[in-house]
Design a protein around this nucleic acid. Structure first.
Lengths: 192, 192, 192, 192
DNA sequence: TTATAACCGAGACGGTACGTCGCGTCTTAGT
DNA sequence: ACTAAGACGCGACGTACCGTCTCGGTTATAA
């Protein structure tokens, strides 16, 4: 059923992804869907959780800090702009902007756990100083900037998160971490 | 009628802001609304344009670069989290995430003109180098980072864009501009 | 729409005469039906009222008392067993036996007015005594017996109200009126 | 389970007497009900059969013909208007008016056997002529008229089958049997 | 000064999806 | 083997809005 919802979302969009259509595609009665989820948004929350829980979804990060960060940003960009998972995430954020209850659920069930996972990976890959892991605080700061910029570019502008964007963004935040001038152009290209 | 739509949005939320309800609140027939707008989303686009076009909406920026940026970020934060205008903007972004046509209209009618306006103000306030205005490119880069981070914090986390956040964010992007270590903690506090 | 409901009732029966089906057959939206009637039973009440209000529905009664009564009973029998109107009436009585509200509505909107009409016709056709019209009381008594017996035979037994039945029933109640022995066999044939 | 169905019918009416509710009230699984009956109508048929089979249900009839008939009519009236048994019977007749299969079952399993029983009692109580039992034919005729009138008054009018009604009805049909004028007013009072 | 047209309120309408209810069938554990 | 528990496919329910469509009634101009 999760699969049916996901497929429908990709095929016909959110508005046309009615509960009845999901039921038909999944060869299931509408009531059966309502027995397990309270709305189609709840279904998408489960789709997203399942996608994100899959360990194979996450690439292994290189040991070198700069390469690790670029790898991470690249992956975030790909997910945002090219994967069904990103589509689901965007739709859910869209609905959360209409409905505070969805916002609470999305943060509690998806964004918060995901942040914990990401933070741990970043801490492991990016030592705060030679020989030590990054502090929780530093990792969070870095993620906020990176995810904020990536989201902004992908959502607000619809422009691709291409290699140039990734390199500049990674360079900028690493420079901030190290307190040195960023290499080359300091920021990603203008977006809107 | 724009006013009725705005009020309803604040009072009952986007889902309950039906065209019929707007008509009733504005003491107008439904058909009259459809004569002027194609959907309730179109109405909100007009509400937003009208809000943003009002010059009194925008604070004057100090001449000192650092103070100007903090003032700008503070204002963006206030609009995002506390104003009806921000609520309308968020709802429209939410709808744009469901419907590409809305996304196109939102970018073309609101985001792009707004970016031009913001860019000009930032260029005027933040000289790229002593004695000159900031280049268009630099201003855009800076705005992308600032708006991305502010949006991320306000939407994705629901946490307030408080003074500490504003100061750290402004400090970080100025440091990037100048190629110097950011003062104190380099980034805003972790958010999710 | 009344016509659509009636046709459907005859074609597919009461259970399958859903509101959706009526709407489809009448080329009308379901909501339009609910705008005017509260249930399919209410529709049938209107169908019945309209049928019964039609003056051409009622045969003219001969002046001779005995012939008039036989004519009346024959007509009641035909309506009960062979007409769409009778089918509607039976279905409504059936529903009234499930639901007191329907019973009240059926009596108030159909049975009571109909009785007034029938009573007037019987009074005109059957003088209580030579030279005078039948009293309201006598006419009612007669109708109760006649309609009771006809309904019982048609509903409870499903047997036809044939000529023999009609003649015996008319003869019996007239004999009661006149205080004389009924001609031939006194009652209709056994029925269950 | 029959008891649970009967109780529910009296408490909440026919529509709300769902199979699920019966199962819950009888502390039984729904499937267990379907193992023994094909529908809730079948259950009611069994309830009715069981009620009517109970010999204590039937009053002993006096030997005097007139008193016997009044006693019988009184009992029929009480059953129709005041007993759970009458309620079940009415509901089943109601359903039979919607569904021919129910009508067939009701006649075959309840009405016909019941008529045999009643006929025998009437034949025993009402000699056709001095010294002999009533013929089967006469007893049936009498029962048709009596039951028809009682049913009509109870169902179609909702008025009580009171003492005056009973006395007049019994008097009228006995007068018909004997070919003499009925005592006093010949028919029951007008009913609709 | 009247006629005539444009616009408006009111709200019925054909549709689509909603979320709920009850049906009768089925599968699963537990006696 | 039979039970309770209850999920399931199915289909109808009655409701909410959608966007379209007549209607009269009132301005607002043109004859």
């Amino acid at each position: 059923m999760l699969r049916a919802a996901d497929d429908l979302l990709m095929d016909v969009g959110f508005q046309a992804m009615t509960v009845g259509a999901i039921a038909e595609r999944a060869d299931v009665a509408k009531q059966t869907i309502y027995r397990w989820w309270r709305s189609k948004v709840d279904i998408l929350l489960d789709v997203l959780e399942e996608d994100l829980r899959d360990p194979s979804f996450w690439p292994e990060l290189p040991h070198h800090p700069h390469a690790a960060l670029e790898r991470y940003v690249t992956h975030v960009g790909t997910v945002f702009t090219e994967s069904p998972t990103g589509r689901v995430l965007f739709v859910l954020i869209g609905h959360a902007l209409h409905d505070p209850a969805t916002a609470t659920a999305l943060r509690g069930e998806v964004l918060r756990p995901q942040r914990q996972y990401d933070r741990a990976r970043i801490q492991a890959a990016l030592p705060s100083r030679p020989g030590g892991a990054a502090s929780r605080h530093h990792a969070d700061q870095l993620l906020d900037l990176v995810v904020g910029a990536a989201f902004h570019r992908a959502f607000m502008t619809g422009r691709p998160l291409d290699t140039r964007f990734v390199r500049q963004l990674a360079g900028a935040v690493l420079a901030l971490r190290d307190g040195v001038p960023p290499p080359g152009a300091p920021f990603p290209a203008p977006s809107v």
